[in-house]
Design a protein around this nucleic acid. Structure first.
Lengths: 239, 239
DNA sequence: CGAATGCTTGAGGCAGTTCAATTCACGTGG
DNA sequence: CCACGTGAATTGAACTGCCTCAAGCATTCG
């Protein structure tokens, strides 16, 4: 899952086939905290998330970390490069994963439809990552955090029907490393949006959008350079 | 082309097949400044760069721009998402491009080998973009600029044999929008590295690495928080 | 040669970081 | 059931790296 300009596209990822008991590799359960694979491991299978949340990370020698993406239901993780995984992958909440053999991606021999769907997933991944570039490179802290919340809420809605709240199973530091910020800035920014009345923070891992439109406006940079005329304050009063 | 941690991988992209006069879609020439496609255009073909440099960009409504990547010889551009291009693509210097029909990617029917190579190129693209995330989200201005120069120099070396200089056909503002900086910061940072003796700037579009190792160290963050002990100065004396 | 455009350099400001101190959530044991 | 301990989240204060705004400089092109 990447933070994108909400185009709706990020939600159209094909669900591929439903869990199929006859599949060579079935759905299996992974417990919170488990590691799925490390950067450099040989790729033998891809995984599609059925439930739960994964975290993909990359590390620099000096310890700096970038969270590449969060794997939410429907997402596919584990695309190889030269046969190797190029991130670490950890399980944030107990998860059900559907495994596909690498051959499903690399040759269409066994199952042409599956092959095509995995290819489309890879292409979709490229597009989503490009959106995320824009966010990392060009958005302010408040735009990043608002974007993040918007995507999570939309994700919740597709999974469970209309929702206005987001579950954040990951830590603040995971969010920070995903958005290119520090934990302090993430925390401060969430507080700032909360104080404006646009969101409520039920508990550390649950955010409710009180004014979804205002949140979306924030994510797009319509916060206004002048605080008095900004959505952040203006919409708060209007609501 | 993305700015990656120099692993050598970025240079292993398959060259695919050499220009083949019998190919359905051959090599064609595009002039500097030409537009190859716009975001939203329907994808009918992919392009592999044979010579010249392309620029892939994305725009936000308010004019903020992110340069997604530069297309250097060997790179493939134009991967579709839902059948559409998701960036603009412009020609920075006169270029020779090999076009492949979209069907080469989407179905292996016509040419299984080509299909596999395009798929591998897409997978490689994902890996390279993940490296670039680290740079956009977690690297300082000097690390970004040094990384950029390192990759360009390595690219020159693979194309024309051992080189220690980089050609920058793009503008400073293109570089800035690629690295998530401003033109002023790019310019200042280049000057700073030049004054340290690590590079020379022959002209606006030509940078020479006087101390390639020091430049690489800079790109990895080995600049040291203490300037007196830093590679920037230390290596300059050592060299 | 003059205008236009892009690059460089300077000065000052600010968003986000860094460092530090509470506060909060939650599990554990008395 | 409550005191305690631990780790995470929040908040505060000061700093700094990069940005913004502005002025000079170089290169190209008419």
């Amino acid at each position: 899952m990447y933070v994108t300009i909400l185009s709706g596209q990020s939600l159209n990822s094909p669900s591929l086939r439903p869990a199929d008991p006859q599949a060579k590799t079935g759905t299996s359960t992974f417990r919170m905290g488990a590691n799925l694979y490390y950067e450099g491991d040989k790729v033998e299978r891809l995984y599609q998330v059925r439930s739960g949340v994964l975290r993909l990370t990359r590390l620099m020698e000096d310890g700096r970390r970038q969270v590449i993406s969060f794997g939410y239901p429907g997402d596919i993780v584990g695309f190889p490069n030269d046969g190797l995984y190029h991130t670490d992958c950890d399980v944030l909440t107990d998860a059900q994963l559907q495994a596909y053999p690498l051959s499903s991606l690399e040759s269409g021999d066994g199952d042409p439809d599956l092959h095509k769907e995995l290819l489309q997933a890879a292409l979709h991944e490229i597009s989503a990552m490009q959106d995320h570039f824009m966010m990392l490179g060009r958005k302010s802290a408040i735009e990043k955090v608002a974007s993040f919340l918007c995507v999570l809420i939309e994700r919740m809605s597709t999974e469970f029907g209309p929702h206005n709240h987001a579950l954040l199973p990951m830590s603040r530091s995971d969010i920070a490393d995903f958005l290119g910020l520090t934990t302090e800035t993430v925390s401060r920014t969430l507080s700032q949006i909360r104080k404006s009345g646009i969101i409520a923070i039920n508990n550390v891992h649950t955010v409710v959008a009180l004014q979804p439109q205002a949140l979306f406006a924030l994510s797009q940079g319509h916060g206004g350079p002048d605080p008095d005329k900004s959505v952040l304050h203006g919409m708060a009063r209007a609501g």
